[in-house]
């Protein structure tokens, strides 16, 4: 088990390899479909994303009516492949060190990881309760006009469990498993 602690850096994540199980402590910014589209359209982000991690997640958030404080009640990853057209450009333009999601991403993002020193972290799909437990607090929210699930939620996390499935050296577990399972499939046809 490896640890990745805030502040993150490209040097740190470049040391990670496909298959590494990692516990992330620090800060995550949620961002899914609408955020990626808006960033890709060239709208300036409301926060500096340099050396940050984007989490593909549309959390369930409750707001305390008295204190106004936000609380995350469920926060599993959403399918990442929908951001395939945008992610590599977001890596290039905003200097993020990685993304967290599920299901993996394609060749364009894999090349982005290599070119800009980023990694793709896979969280366990469906594990909304375990992952919400690792979130200590909501630090801020941006672009709430996109709707709650699509907004940028700034989350403080401790030991958030992920697996590196695409690294900064051109390796993709998804491509490997695809190839090996295809080979097995041919045998059983």
């Amino acid at each position: 088990m490896k640890k990745l602690n805030y502040p993150f850096s490209h040097e740190q994540v470049k040391e990670l390899k496909v298959g590494d199980m990692v516990l992330i402590t620090g800060k995550l910014f949620t961002g899914r479909d609408a955020v990626h589209k808006r960033l890709h359209d060239g709208v300036k982000p409301p926060v500096n994303l340099q050396n940050q991690i984007i989490y593909h997640c549309g959390p369930v958030i409750l707001q305390d009516k008295k204190t106004g404080k936000y609380q995350v009640t469920a926060a599993g990853p959403t399918t990442s492949i929908r951001e395939e057209p945008y992610e590599a450009d977001v890596m290039r333009d905003y200097g993020i060190v990685g993304v967290i999601g599920k299901g993996g991403m394609g060749p364009k993002t894999l090349k982005g990881c290599k070119d800009y020193g980023c990694v793709y972290f896979h969280a366990v799909g469906g594990a909304a309760q375990v992952l919400a437990e690792k979130i200590n607090s909501v630090e801020a929210v941006h672009w709430l006009d996109l709707g709650s699930p699509e907004a940028i939620w700034e989350l403080s996390v401790t030991d958030f469990p992920v697996v590196v499935t695409m690294d900064a050296h051109g390796n993709s577990l998804h491509a490997d498993v695809q190839a090996s399972s295809e080979a097995e499939f041919k045998k059983v046809l």
Partner: peptide, 27 residues
């Protein structure tokens, strides 16, 4: 292995959702 790791998280999630009586998955 990462497979065992994922299954352990799944197991923990099943137990936690039941305990808290909250949705297993946000979807």
């Amino acid at each position: 292995t990462t497979a065992e790791y994922a299954m352990n998280i799944i197991k923990a999630n099943i137990e936690l959702a039941k305990k808290k009586s909250q949705p297993l998955c946000q979807d």
